[in-house]
Design a protein around this nucleic acid. Structure first.
Lengths: 205, 205
DNA sequence: ATGCTAGTGGAACGATCATTCCAAAACAAG
DNA sequence: CTTGTTTTGGAATGATCGTTCCACTAGCAT
């Protein structure tokens, strides 16, 4: 017998994701979620055993709906600096779309407010950063192969640097209204990477 | 008539600061503060009208006790890349001292979990980032004057980039046990800046 | 000793939290 | 319609939150 909820499960998660993203896990109450999703308390608890479980579903959905579309170009075989620019452009577009204030990255926001006690949450957050780390590393290594200038160890260092640096960008994009400043950061990052790799800065898309 | 509390006011703030720093504003309860500071509830409320007021005192103390000692070299007249290295070394020392897991930067942690409603808190956080921005900009400009290679606009871009990038480092230092990775990041940052400014990487202190 | 005052300990308050529960409603099948 | 089951609205629960209150102690001047 098929379920026919008034609000589908994925729409529920999408709505909850938006709320968690904007306000943060600890400040969002179940009452907020009931109001903002339009789904009844009982229904929430019949779909998810707890607030934590619902939040974890949101983290998974965030990967699928936000991270993957933005980051997939970088993860493609043979991706290079140009694909990293695509990823940055995605971020800038997102920032420009929210003129009042950005929401940053759900994973990084959560990372700053999670306690060591919430181990299963932490695990999902770490999975996200290792995913980014792998993608960036592969892209930089592939770009480097085309120019043959840096040893493998330098690529390790450079990709780690890029990852950490990008986390700063996401942190800055939260609450910032200054999209041009973010763009300037992105251009500088691309410039520095290109300098180091000995290649051209990829053209603006 | 002089006050003679069992616990002095600055010791109270220091203890509260440590707690807020580790766990974050929203997850710390007044009960936690009573337990961890050893100061009675009534005494807390006789010194500070609210939890927010106490937290603001902690933010101010954080500036004075943590940020200023670490960042003062960069703010000194004529500071350059070498002083930025000193600042980074301070961060690395702090990370190595907490082998279990670092606490990151109180300001950045708070920035990720504050809501637009808490305007006075936000104001203090913004003051911190503009302070860092000014210091970094002056140091890079001063370093640039010694080598005369980049126009002013490039220094603007580079200092903004450095600030955002450092925010990523602080975010990463929270919960990370991998001090060598942080060090590698710092070395790469210094290398890229030196490359761009056309000067030598300052020697490890 | 007696008063006075500053500071303490902890109970109490109202609000809100995550979670549970149940009776009414909506819908399906006969 | 009458059943049986699922979904809904919202009250109830017990815990915890920030904050207030007040009886009590300790120190000091008289």
């Amino acid at each position: 017998m098929p379920r026919a909820k008034s609000t589908s499960r994925t729409a529920l998660v999408d709505s909850a994701l938006k709320t968690f993203w904007k306000k943060g896990f600890h400040v969002v109450s179940m009452g907020d979620l009931v109001r903002e999703t339009g789904v009844n308390r009982s229904s929430l608890y019949s779909d998810f055993p707890s607030k934590d479980a619902l939040f974890h579903a949101c983290l998974d959905r965030y990967q699928e709906k936000v991270v993957t579309p933005a980051f997939a170009p970088v993860e493609r075989e043979g991706a290079g600096l140009a694909e990293i620019r695509l990823y940055l452009e995605n971020l800038l577009t997102r920032s420009a779309a929210h003129p009042g204030s950005g929401d940053g990255c759900l994973v990084l926001n959560t990372l700053a407010q999670v306690t060591p006690a919430e181990a299963d949450t932490l695990q999902r957050l770490r999975a996200h950063t290792t995913r980014l780390q792998r993608g960036i590393h592969r892209a930089l290594a592939s770009e480097n192969q085309r120019h043959q200038c840096l040893p493998e160890a330098e690529i390790d260092a450079l990709s780690r640097f890029t990852l950490i640096s990008l986390q700063g960008l996401w942190a800055q994009s939260r609450g910032s209204t200054d999209t041009p400043a973010l763009r300037q950061y992105c251009e500088t990052l691309l410039l520095l990477l290109a300098n180091r790799l000995g290649c051209e800065v990829p053209a603006d898309g």
